[in-house]
Design a protein around this nucleic acid. Structure first.
Length: 283
DNA sequence: ATCCCCACCTGGCCGC
DNA sequence: TGCGGCCAGGTGGGGA
């Protein structure tokens, strides 16, 4: 499910409970996630303390003392829950719980039905990790701006939709927020990204607008996510994702929500993924 | 290099 | 109520 705002919310939820907790026990499922479990994962992390939690794009970085970091990605269906430890009863694993970490006062469980998630362990700088090092700038950061973005579109020849899904161009966006940002910018998802820059690689007005709208939609979604945080460690533990209503995503055949547009939301497939847009107002 | 497509999985939903 | 088919918010890797 998770794109940048959801991952940010998960990160904040984890942060609230598990900082300064020491890893006491670890369960790994016999099934692997997207990749095999890191070698000697359990023996390497048991006894270490969680000192910080960060987010980079859709990755969560759980740093331990002695310079180890767990790098985790939720894939399509991953979720964490945190439960207060029950002294009289061990945690009973649910179906698809693939990693359960027993801390001093909490149980942290990672559940992932589709197992597209990803968990690695590194003792180098997390930013130098092979996947993190390829990531483009974060929305809402200074390095995400129209001039640099225009520069990275130079010599590119593909749709703006597919371009924005490329994590090396801008990181953290997924199918939903790309559709929503393009709608807010009134840009047709099929438009070639080269049309948003001048021949000299400078940003056109639409690209400037797009940068602003990406930031806007991401910020709104993070703000909404914050309000779901209190559920993070409830007794059933399941963290809810957003109930944000979208303007175009999953609204095929419905009316464009823009006043006096009158268009109907269409669904097309680009590179095998659904794109939702209003062909009337997105040009 | 650049771009596209596939594979990796399970579960939910829809139509018959 | 059952079953087959289709769809799903991600992304690394391989082939064109």
């Amino acid at each position: 499910m998770p794109e940048l705002p959801e991952v940010e919310t998960v990160k904040r939820g984890l942060e609230e409970f598990i900082i300064n907790e020491t890893i006491r026990k670890v369960y790994l499922s016999e099934l692997k996630l997207r990749f095999p479990w890191p070698k000697n994962f359990i023996s390497k992390v048991v006894g270490k303390k969680i000192v910080s939690i960060k987010r980079r794009a859709k990755y969560i970085i759980i740093s331990l003392n002695q310079d180890y970091s767990i790098i985790a990605h939720l894939g399509m269906s991953g979720s964490y829950k945190v439960l207060k430890k029950n002294v009289t009863q061990d945690y009973i694993r649910l179906k698809h719980d693939h990693l359960v970490i027993e801390l001093d006062n909490f149980i942290l469980a990672y559940n992932d039905p589709r197992r597209f998630g990803y968990i690695d362990l590194t003792n180098e700088e997390p930013e130098k990790h092979k996947f993190l090092s390829l990531l483009g700038p974060e929305p809402l950061s200074n390095s995400f701006n129209e001039n640099d973005l225009a520069g990275s579109l130079l010599n590119k020849n593909k749709s703006i939709k597919n371009t924005l899904l490329d994590q090396s161009i801008v990181s953290g966006l997924g199918n939903i927020y790309v559709c929503e940002a393009l709608f807010r910018s009134k840009i047709n998802p099929k438009k070639n990204c080269s049309k948003l820059i001048t021949s000299k690689g400078k940003p056109r007005q639409k690209l400037i607008l797009l940068v602003n709208k990406i930031n806007e939609v991401i910020k709104e979604a993070i703000d909404v996510g914050g309000s779901t945080l209190r559920d993070f460690s409830s007794t059933d533990g399941k963290m809810g994702y957003f109930q944000t209503s979208f303007n175009v995503y999953d609204r095929e055949g419905e009316k464009c929500l823009l006043d006096d547009c009158g268009g109907v939301i269409k669904r097309v497939v680009q590179s095998g993924r659904s794109t939702f847009f209003c062909s009337n107002c997105q040009k």
